[in-house]
Amino acid sequence: MSNLQLFRAQTVAQLFADVAKNLDLYRSGDFTDLLHDQSHFLDSSCTTDEEALKKITSTKENDNEVACCLHILQAIGGVSSYLARDERLWARLCHIELLEYARTRWPIPANDEKAVTHIKKHFFAKGARGIERDNAASRLWWMATICNKVEGLPLDQALTAFLHQSDVRANIVERPTTSQNATLLSSVVNKLHESYNGDKALYEREKFRAVMKNLNLEGGVRLLEVLGSKELKKLVEKVSK
């Protein structure tokens, strides 16, 4: 394990401003020249397993999401939730250690104008949405961290159920009452796991949205936060029918 230095804020800002100038570097080059100038970096308390970072890979045929989530948790699992919301961490990883992963997982469009927008979305991390859903590296950490709270399933199985369908995943992440309540989250993901190993009916877009809507309605009548795991399991079963 070694300490990982963050980009300085001014380095992130300059890279963001220079995306159009650096398109060739994003497409097929690298930013390792930055490593030779210490003025671009800031010490942090983040420790990283460099070998685990190297295992975060993707191909055109397989995005390898579950494995990548497991590897990033192994690589920087001890990072604080405060630092996990710091763009300087994720911009550094997407421009240095995980550059090849980022451009393979999120192929850069041939059109230069579209490429600039695409890079700003996936190689940087602006705001909560950018950090939790868009940045190539941070989204892996956040999805792994959410699924690590799930009880009753090994992490890889929880991730498999959670990641199977993007709309389902978004519906969970965008509802703090579900994603931040470990007991309710566990009930929902366990139900998804059951459906994943069955007919996958719960992954139908309208079906799952109806489930989440009904959970919200139930939450307006009673405090879901105070219900135990057995009660929440019954509730999820009820709204899933």
Rank of each mutant, 00 (worst) to 15 (best):
K21T: 07
S166A: 14
Q165A: 01
A182M: 07
F31W: 09
K121A: 15
R27S: 10
N64D: 09
E231L: 13
Y82A: 12
G219P: 05
V150C: 07
I108Y: 09
V188N: 08
K241L: 08
I172P: 08
T47V: 02
T48S: 05
R103V: 06
Y203I: 11
E97V: 04
N135V: 13
N190L: 14
D134T: 00
L184K: 01
D86L: 08
E51D: 10
D24K: 04
V189I: 15
S45I: 01
E204S: 13
A17C: 15
G78T: 07
L98R: 04
K191Q: 14
K207L: 11
P109A: 11
I56G: 10
S28D: 15
T145P: 04
A210R: 12
N3L: 03
D18T: 14
S28Y: 12
K238V: 00
L227V: 12
F123W: 15
E231Q: 05
S229C: 14
V116P: 03
I56D: 03
D37C: 04
H122Y: 15
K149D: 14
G78H: 12
L140A: 04
E87Y: 12
E174W: 08
N62Q: 04
E174K: 06
V189K: 07
L35G: 02
D86I: 00
L163A: 01
L35F: 00
Y196M: 11
F41H: 07
T117M: 13
N148C: 06
K120W: 04
N197R: 08
S138I: 07
E225Y: 03
K126Q: 14
T59P: 13
L83S: 06
T48R: 03
H193Y: 11
L15I: 07
T48Y: 02
A20F: 01
V211Q: 00
F31D: 07
Q180I: 09
R169C: 10
A170L: 10
K213G: 03
W106K: 09
N190H: 14
C69E: 08
S45V: 06
E132T: 02
L99F: 02
T11E: 13
E65Y: 11
E51S: 09
I131S: 11
A84Q: 09
R85Y: 14
R139E: 10
V173Q: 05
